[in-house]
């Protein structure tokens, strides 16, 4: 068994090639979110217990764990929708000190399924993202409407701009919400199981786009091409954004996240760096939360992919 305490330390080796193209940002990337000794719950039931981790700019941080381990509770606490103890610093500012409007400008929240219950054109859904910067009675400007169309183009939904949001498939809805996130231009993106209701191509497309947004790649290319077409290994400029994503699929998490926070029974059991940590270390940590598993590495075209298999 490896030295488990090392798993809680930030790993200096972070130049790596991820499955979604583009190299990971340098290890010195500034911290976007610093969570220290966070405890939260519902009423008297404490779900999260003293969780500490950080999310750096230009990185996707994944939250992994079985059902009921506190992933969504953590996101809700960061959205200030649940009472919590501990400290959460976003770009050096305490979340508690921010006004609701400041919080909305700094954090973009993407739920499992958007709670839009009425018919409205896709463009209007994206334009909602400008609300934190608009006055109470102010309407989106022409430039903002243009940005909304650019964001839709970036996610490949431009043709649906005037379509009713309600009649889109779940995958298309998630792409619209991602376009809304692009126009929000927040520094921290919180995604609650964005892949849970999506089919295989859509879940990879979403993570691919998210990687592009976080790594500061051009998300508004006129051809609407996929972001994975970028040359692997190409250095990209950090967007100054970070993403914190709860995921059910550990395979997808290993492929798309720079850092993984493992939760079990509300406690952080390990912090992994999939591209840098050793397979036995990661296997042991993942086995602790999912039961016995095997982790294998597959090299293809200079990319390392990790495959999770049941032990048996």
């Amino acid at each position: 068994m490896s030295d488990r305490s090392s798993l809680f330390q930030e790993n200096p080796r972070s130049i790596q090639v991820s499955a979604y193209g583009g190299s990971a940002p340098a290890a010195e990337a500034p911290v976007c979110l610093q969570v220290s000794s966070l405890s939260a719950g519902y009423g008297r039931a404490q779900i999260l217990k003293n969780v500490s981790f950080c999310a750096k700019q230009g990185e996707i941080t994944g939250l992994l764990g079985p059902n009921g381990c506190g992933k969504t509770t953590l996101l809700r606490a960061l959205c200030r929708q649940l009472p919590f103890t501990g400290s959460c610093l976003l770009n050096g500012l305490s979340l508690e000190q921010m006004t609701s409007r400041q919080l909305a400008r700094q954090i973009s929240y993407i739920p499992q399924r958007s709670g839009i219950a009425i018919s409205m054109p896709v463009t209007d859904v994206v334009l909602m993202g400008f609300n934190p910067v608009l006055g109470l009675l102010e309407q989106p400007s022409r430039a903002q409407k243009e940005k909304a169309h650019e964001a839709l183009r970036a996610v490949g939904m431009e043709a649906y701009a005037e379509q009713d949001y309600q009649i889109l498939s779940e995958g298309q809805k998630q792409l619209c919400i991602l376009a809304r996130t692009i126009v929000e231009d927040a520094s921290l993106l919180l995604l609650d199981e964005p892949e849970s209701s999506l089919d295989f191509p859509h879940r990879h497309r979403i993570m691919e786009l998210l990687t592009g947004i976080i790594r500061g790649q051009d998300t508004t290319r006129a051809d609407g091409g996929t972001l994975s077409e970028d040359t692997p290994g190409k250095q990209t400029v950090s967007s100054g954004k970070a993403a914190l994503v709860t995921l059910h699929d550990p395979q997808l998490a290993l492929e798309s996240c720079s850092r993984l926070v493992l939760l079990k029974d509300g406690v952080c059991t390990a912090i992994l760096h999939p591209a840098a940590d050793s397979l036995p270390d990661m296997e042991a940590s993942l086995s602790e939360i999912y039961g016995p598993i095997r982790l294998r590495a597959l090299e293809e075209n200079g990319r390392r992919s990790l495959i999770l298999l049941p032990r048996g």
Binding site: R76, C79, Q81, S100, R101, L103, A104, R105, I107, S108, Y109, P111, S114, G115, I116, A117, I118, M120, D124, M128, G129, N131, P132, L134, L136, L137, Q139
Partner: peptide
Amino acid sequence: LLHRQIILLSVDESEARMLGV
């Protein structure tokens, strides 16, 4: 005048709050 806010209120509460409403 508040039509845009009315539409934002039709969104799920937690989502609307994170949109600055």
